[in-house]
Amino acid sequence: MTLELAVRIAEGILAFAIMQQSVEFIRGQHPEKYLAWLRLMLASFLLVGFMPVWMETGLLLIALILIKRFQGPYNGGSDTMTLLVLLCLWLSHIASMLFTHTKLWQEIALGYLAIQLILSYFQAGWVKVINPEWRSGKALENVFAFTAYPVSQSVRQWATNPALMFYMSWAVILFELIFPLTIFSTVALYIALFIAAVFHLANACLFGLNRFFWIWPAAYPILIWFQSRVF
């Protein structure tokens, strides 16, 4: 995949994810409600590829206002990934405008995003595998039994099945730890990204983390480009 194509696909998915987030805010409170309308408009233009660098500049400014408003990200990791994708894509455009004779700086900006995507899985797996409670399945049992994440009582009941918790824990840990190795093979990477998307879908269904499901795939085209560029 070429750099330009990866950026365009990533921008399309990012724009859709921001539109999804904005529509949720529109039903909310002020001032984020009014900023959401502006965000929705800018993301719509970004979706169709209209002046992407200016749309991304506007979206970055709004993101800064929202971070100040909420004194940090509103939706934890999903907001972090949204801003990271947005910033790296914006930097890649700025680099292409400033350094017309080389793609190096563009590649550095996008490479940073690819590495953060890999880390987002690997580090999450690492902190789990070094924790005995995760290795025994007890931590996941506590997630289902006590945290605010399960979306219904029937999902909370999953905690009463220790064997299920054990196998689910290890499936997640192994997948997250193995993920970086998949960049050595194109086929393995495509399979890993498909499994990752299914993993985010499961998180959305079980824990209501719908924003993660839309924003993480925005970085996938950049990782696919990165894999073909490096290997």
Binding site: P73, G77, L84, V127, N131, E133, A139, V143, F146
Partner: peptide, 17 residues
């Protein structure tokens, strides 16, 4: 202080409950 953890994120999802 709000921006730094976003630019250099730590992806420690559910590290401890």
């Amino acid at each position: 202080k709000f921006l730094l953890p976003i630019l250099f994120p730590s992806w420690r999802f559910f590290s401890s409950i």
